[in-house]
Design a protein around this nucleic acid. Sequence first.
DNA 1: ACTGTTACCTGATTGC
DNA 2: TGCAATCAGGTAACAG
Length: 280
Amino acid sequence: MPELPEVETVRRGLSARLTGRRIARVHLARADLRWPIPSGFAQALTGRRILSFARRGKTILMRLEAGQTALWHLGMSGRLRLSAAGEAPPPARHEHVVLETDDGARLGFVDPRRFGSLDLLATASEADHPRLAALGPEPLDEGFTPAVLEVALRGRRTAIKAALMDQRVIAGLGNIYACEALFRAGISPRRSAESVRGARAARLAAAIRATLEEAIAAGGSSLRDWRQTDGALGYFQHVCKVYGRAGEPCERCPGPRACRGIAAIVQHGRTSFYCPRTQR
DNA sequence: ACTGTTACCTGATTGC
DNA sequence: TGCAATCAGGTAACAG
């Protein structure tokens, strides 16, 4: 499930619980997820202290001593579950990786579909990692302005919806929040990306930011100690305004009679939800 | 270079 | 109830 708000919520949970801890043990139940786990992964982590957790797009960067960074990507079905010393987490299928820290905490990476990935960055620079280096601007950074969005979209002849999901254009949006941001901005997912300029780009930039911030706030406030009862970090029921609501009236139309209902169309193999009356 | 399609995996849900 | 078909929030390899 995880798009930027979920990943950011997971990051905060990890940070609150694991910053400063030393990794005592790494157990790999298999050698690959989406890609092979780097051969030196367990060795690079074992015995090292965790300095901090950062995030770039949907990737969590676990900063370690000696300039090492472990990259965690949850893919589509990945989740992390954390338990404290003495807690015995219920057995979970598809738990592929387990870390144990010096204070007895246990972090398990569960990912049924295995679209997630683990990677290792041995230098301090994200520019040295091809997938991170290719990512577009970070939408919650101060530098994410309408002008930056406009430049990112310039010359893109694809639909704005597809552009927003392209991580090279902007980092962190997936299908849900691309739909929600476009609804908020009143822009049709079918409009061409390059036609989103000027006031439209300004509306979209603001809508992206507000949508993500609201979702993060909802996730943060709904999780006590950043964990659900099963120890899973960072998942929450975000209330969507258009995603998954095909046929329902949208909240911006004056009434059910005015609204033709939220439409679902397939673009680039993904379902887009939008209100054809208020999104142009 | 850009754009769209397909494949990768398992599980939940829908339809017959 | 059972079983098959369909769909799922991500990404990159590939074809045109």
